[in-house]
Amino acid sequence: MSEKKNDILLDVRHLQVYFPIKRGLMKRVVGHVHAVEDVSFTVKRREVFALVGESGCGKSTTGSAILRLIEPTAGQVYFEGENLSTLSEEQMRLKRRDMQFIFQNPYASLNPRMNVWKLLSEPLKVHFDLPPQELRSRVEEMLHLIGMTPDQLERYPHQFSGGQKQRISIARALITHPSFVVADEPVSALDVSIQAQILNLMMELQQEMELSLVFISHDLNVVRHISNSVGVMYLGSLMETGDTEEVYRHPAHPYTQALLSAVPSHDPTNKSKHIVLEGDVPNPASPPSGCPFHTRCRYCTKVCEEKKPELQEIAPHHFAACHHVGEM
């Protein structure tokens, strides 16, 4: 892909989300949970960018903040060159025709009182003023794309299996033909054999509809398969980012190295030598000084405790935030 400026669909700059902690009768603000801390990345057209990390690292908050489902505390998100944070709520609502969200849990994200027809036609009614025949044909076209048939339109969510429900959620997000979608853990609630079906469907649709995707997941194998580039998050900060294959083959950040080595191998004769991290992720309400990872890092030195490392380019398109990145 060329490096032209207009190739970039989404540009996230210094995004920051803090949640206030309120105490007492007067709801006094006593502190902040630092959910997302100065995160910047870009997503090109037709690119799948994955955000990967453990629970509580801020990956879902980042996804929601891009679409302003959560208002960012600071920073800007540019979509097709337009600064989303300056839009009014009504303008933002219209923008969501082009920017959609797929949620993690299809059991909870579909209204149980709406049948498939209502679920799929609602986004079209909100965003377009279509004559009834066209509404019908758009819904049926989408149903066909997700591998379902029009005779299922009258059914309600509880009559479908988890995999089928997730297909409906995907259809609901894509029916307005958005150019950009945030998918927040779309397969983690599903069984292994169903996961593969949904991932295949998402990759097909992504190609066919020329989608850009921010794919949020904690599953490192899934991320490697589906994404072109990846950002590894820890405690609200991006620790490493780059082309997926490059990051997986040559992980530069000690956290990425530990994360990749912690994945159980499927070969019992080769019980992998894990880098087992000590301790837990620190509390994001009182993050450690300096590098957020220094409390669990094998290579921690004095400078790590004092100064937060910036992302630096260590190979073409490959960035890592570590003081000791060249020395390991």
């Binding site: 995999g163 292994v192 079906q197 398969h225």
Partner: peptide
């Protein structure tokens, strides 16, 4: 075999993942 192929085809050569059709 299907279960193993479904998990090990992740990150494999082919973009298309191996799937077991249908549901349990």
């Amino acid at each position: 075999l299907g279960l193993l192929r479904a998990v090990t085809s992740l990150g494999g050569e082919s973009r298309k993942l191996y799937t077991i059709p249908g549901i349990v």
